[in-house]
């Protein structure tokens, strides 16, 4: 079995600073890390490798320094890693990203399943996995909370959708996205980490995807959605109103608040 795990390098969200006045995100202030949900996807793949035998390839699109995340993937059990990095890929929205990843997967050719995180913590869209699935005409299992494999049946995941939990079993190839509850990603062993730090990560550029991806399909020019403006809203302040011996007034204010959040079901005036 060959599993491709899609990964993204993201800023450490606990450390990113936002300048409310200038409207700037200071990405440099934070270190980068592997998108936490992608570690769940990787862990699911590595568990499958241990239980059923599989080869795991980590695939990441990003700037050259994103090879750090791929080394992290190697230290956590991936067998191979591949970086897609080219200035031509810069500025891709989810659609252009999905097309670039799908092109690379097309060039890799053989695989049995694609795993990805439920979403990334910076973009927070959760779209890329689903779009890759559509581009490759694969069944999609979103929000996998557990995964099992049975010889002759295929990969099965429990997902939470609509009003309950469903088991989705994919008999052939499929794309799965994983939630944080799917597993607990293992920590890298120190010796594995040392080895991965010295690994050489292959990198494909746009030219390497010739025949699979046209320049017009990736990067800023291949992106149908464009960010026009960014606003950094100030942190909300607590209203700090305190009511004593004034319950009716308190309940009035609370009602206004609940209504503003649409939490009251059509209480007619």
């Amino acid at each position: 079995m060959h599993i491709i795990v899609l990964m993204k390098e993201v800023p450490d969200m606990e450390k990113v600073r936002f300048d409310t006045e200038k409207g700037v995100i200071d990405r440099k202030s934070a270190g980068t890390e592997v998108n936490p949900f992608d570690l769940n996807a990787l862990e699911a793949a590595v568990q499958l490798k241990e239980s059923a035998g599989a080869t795991v390839t980590a695939l990441c699109m990003g700037p050259p320094q994103a090879e750090k995340s791929l080394k992290e993937a190697l230290s956590r059990g991936a067998d191979e890693a591949l970086l897609l990095s080219d200035t031509a890929f810069g500025g891709s929205d989810t659609w252009a990203t999905a097309r670039t990843l799908a092109a690379a997967i097309g060039k890799i050719g053989t695989y049995d399943a694609i795993f990805a995180g439920e979403k990334t913590v910076d973009g927070d869209t959760g779209q890329v996995g689903a779009q890759v699935a559509q581009l490759l005409a694969l069944p999609l299992v979103s929000y996998a909370e557990s995964l099992c494999w049975e010889e002759g049946t295929g990969l099965a995941a429990v997902v939470s959708l609509w009003d309950g939990f469903y088991r989705k079993t994919v008999t052939g190839k499929g794309l799965f996205t994983f939630t944080k509850t799917a597993n607990t990603p293992r920590l890298p062993g120190v010796r594995d980490k040392m080895k991965a730090r010295k690994a050489v990560i292959p990198c494909w550029k746009l030219a390497d995807l010739a025949g699979h991806l046209d320049a017009s399909e990736t990067g800023f020019s291949g992106s149908p959605t464009k960010v026009k403006r960014i606003v950094i809203p100030p942190a909300p302040q607590r209203q700090g109103q305190c009511y004593r011996d004034a319950l009716p007034e308190a309940l009035d204010q609370l009602e206004t608040l609940l209504k503003s959040k649409h939490l009251l079901k059509e209480v007619e005036a």
Binding site: K15, E33, P36, L187, P188, G189, V190, R191
Partner: peptide, 20 residues
Amino acid sequence: VDICDANGAVDSLIAETGKE
């Protein structure tokens, strides 16, 4: 880890992300 291994450590892991 070299010192610990010499004393019979059976595994060594490293956490680098803030969350882990």
